[in-house]
Simulated scan of single mutants.
Amino acid sequence: MQDFSYPDHEKEAIYRVIAERRDMRHFLPTPVAPEVLAKILHAAHHAPSVGLMQPWRFIRITDINTRRQIHQLVDKERVQTAQAIGEHENSARMAEFLRLKVEGILECGELIVVTLCDKREEHIFGRRTLPEMDIASVSCAIQNMWLASRAEGLGMGWVSIFDPVELGTLLNMPTGAKPVAILCLGHVNSFYKEPMLIETGWKQAKPLADMVMENQWKSTE
């Protein structure tokens, strides 16, 4: 049998970048080199997509006023999310959420909005029974960006606290298209040793053993 595996040092690099990827919130304003940004976007464009539909679209935000408007949309939703947490859990948990830093929109070197394209209903291959495979494909592109960014020494943070209709209107997106991520990308002072929500005590990660089943669903509750 032919061995298609990579050399050990290359395999170690792959597993290392996966393990050290972090959802970053703290950035330096240092610009991202254009050639590095191009490499990261190419990595995204190499992502797998169901039926080769390539539903991802990337809007690079270079206008400072648009960046500020996006920040305002996120901050408004941050408050509404806090209120929902308070209603669902308690006021202490709401206050704890409000103390979290949930984005770096005004500080990061690059701001990119990742969207689903319009006219996705035309793509049937792989989506007839699972139409959500369009967003699964976009998620693969975002993960590629995350890993490429970490390999380049850059931090990236995925912000999902926003109203997609309001953001779509702000960015003049066509009917049927939908924003799914605001990505903060840029240089950082350091990377979190653990995911930030673990470091801050907001939540603990579950072990892999709780996620793996055999043959049938098995509840771990």
Results as ranks from 00 to 15, higher is better:
residue 3 D to T: 10
residue 7 P to H: 04
residue 7 P to M: 01
residue 12 E to K: 09
residue 16 R to L: 11
residue 17 V to G: 09
residue 24 M to Q: 08
residue 28 L to H: 08
residue 31 P to M: 07
residue 37 L to W: 03
residue 39 K to C: 08
residue 41 L to F: 04
residue 41 L to C: 09
residue 47 A to F: 00
residue 47 A to C: 03
residue 47 A to Y: 00
residue 49 S to Y: 00
residue 53 M to A: 12
residue 54 Q to G: 04
residue 56 W to M: 10
residue 74 V to D: 04
residue 75 D to I: 05
residue 77 E to S: 12
residue 79 V to N: 12
residue 80 Q to E: 15
residue 91 S to A: 15
residue 92 A to Y: 10
residue 99 R to C: 14
residue 99 R to M: 14
residue 100 L to E: 13
residue 102 V to N: 13
residue 103 E to W: 01
residue 104 G to K: 03
residue 107 E to D: 13
residue 115 T to D: 03
residue 115 T to V: 11
residue 115 T to N: 06
residue 117 C to D: 14
residue 126 G to H: 00
residue 126 G to N: 05
residue 128 R to H: 06
residue 131 P to E: 07
residue 131 P to G: 07
residue 132 E to L: 06
residue 132 E to M: 06
residue 136 A to C: 13
residue 144 N to G: 08
residue 146 W to L: 13
residue 150 R to E: 09
residue 155 G to W: 01
residue 160 S to A: 13
residue 174 P to S: 07
residue 177 A to L: 03
residue 178 K to G: 02
residue 178 K to N: 12
residue 182 I to D: 09
residue 182 I to L: 07
residue 184 C to W: 01
residue 185 L to I: 08
residue 190 S to L: 09
residue 192 Y to N: 15
residue 198 I to N: 03
residue 206 K to D: 13
residue 208 L to N: 09
residue 210 D to P: 02
residue 215 N to D: 11
residue 221 E to T: 11
